[in-house]
């Protein structure tokens, strides 16, 4: 570590089209506060480096970056960002490491680079508060609002989550809500009705729905882990879900990944 503060990143993906406005570079932080059974990026859950095996070749998930290295990587595409584009911090849970990167955020702001964060908001409120001034747009996952289920399945606290969401709203941020849809958990009536209720009280927020999938299978295998299979959700079902949410007044987009 050379005594220097470093950030653990699994991937920096350039020219992303779906993680916010314009052309973007998405930084995937390693380490998450939850362990969603449907996670499609299992290599981002653990907060340490992990070895993997693919076709007999071994390697390590996770690479440490200094702040300067990360900055240089992000600004490589600055000319492509234009007016709207920029950087999206994703993960894992970016709000675990991002609060330690305020000078980086500040430099990016100075360059007028748009900053998005994809978060599940299961983090201490202080962490959220520390990055708030720098972030243009939050994508907030809304997964399980049922207290016991949230604790047992994800390992999260609904109260913290809702408090953080309120904090965002109180500060005038307009997050885009993302709902991963699966019959086994999120769409279960006792949970989904809570989601509908919450959205009904916030009809001005945009909502994206998408089906959980098994695209992370190869990554699970590379880590020697089992990838759960999910009952397939058809586009028609997603459309029905969108209609149900839409009845509460929200504008809903179907994200077909």
């Amino acid at each position: 570590m050379d005594g220097e503060k470093k950030t653990l990143i699994t991937n920096i993906q350039r020219m992303c089209m779906h993680d916010g406005p314009g052309i973007r570079t998405t930084v995937f932080f390693k380490g998450c506060s939850l362990h969603c059974p449907w996670c499609s990026n299992p290599e981002n859950i653990s907060a340490g480096r992990e070895s993997y095996t693919v076709n007999g070749n071994t390697g390590m998930y996770g690479k440490f970056y200094t702040e300067e290295e990360l900055y240089r990587e992000i600004i490589k595409d600055i000319k492509f960002f234009g007016q709207g584009g920029g950087v999206t911090f994703s993960g894992g849970e970016p709000l675990l490491q991002l609060p330690f990167l305020q000078p980086l955020l500040s430099r990016l702001r100075e360059k007028d680079i748009n900053i998005c964060v994809e978060t599940a908001l299961h983090v201490p409120t202080e962490s959220l508060m520390s990055v708030l001034p720098y972030v243009d747009l939050f994508f907030v996952d809304m997964k399980i609002l049922h207290g016991d289920m949230c604790k047992n399945v994800l390992g999260g606290e609904v109260a913290t989550y809702l408090h953080n969401l309120d904090t965002l709203l109180d500060r005038g941020k307009q997050p885009i809500i993302r709902i991963p849809c699966n019959r086994e958990y999120t769409l279960k009536e006792e949970n989904f009705s809570l989601i509908l209720d919450w959205l009904k009280t916030h009809p001005h927020l945009s909502v994206e729905v998408f089906a959980t999938h098994s695209l992370g299978k190869a990554k699970y295998e590379s880590l020697g882990k089992e990838c759960l299979r999910w009952a397939q959700i058809s586009t028609e079902e997603l459309e029905e879900i969108a209609v149900r949410i839409g009845r509460g007044g929200s504008k809903v987009f179907i994200n077909s990944i």
Partner: peptide, 17 residues
């Protein structure tokens, strides 16, 4: 098709780059 406007941005920005 999915990213038409962003692809236009990419090409226009590419000229400048």
């Amino acid at each position: 098709e999915q990213n038409f406007d962003k692809m236009t941005d990419l090409l226009m920005a590419g000229i400048g780059v």
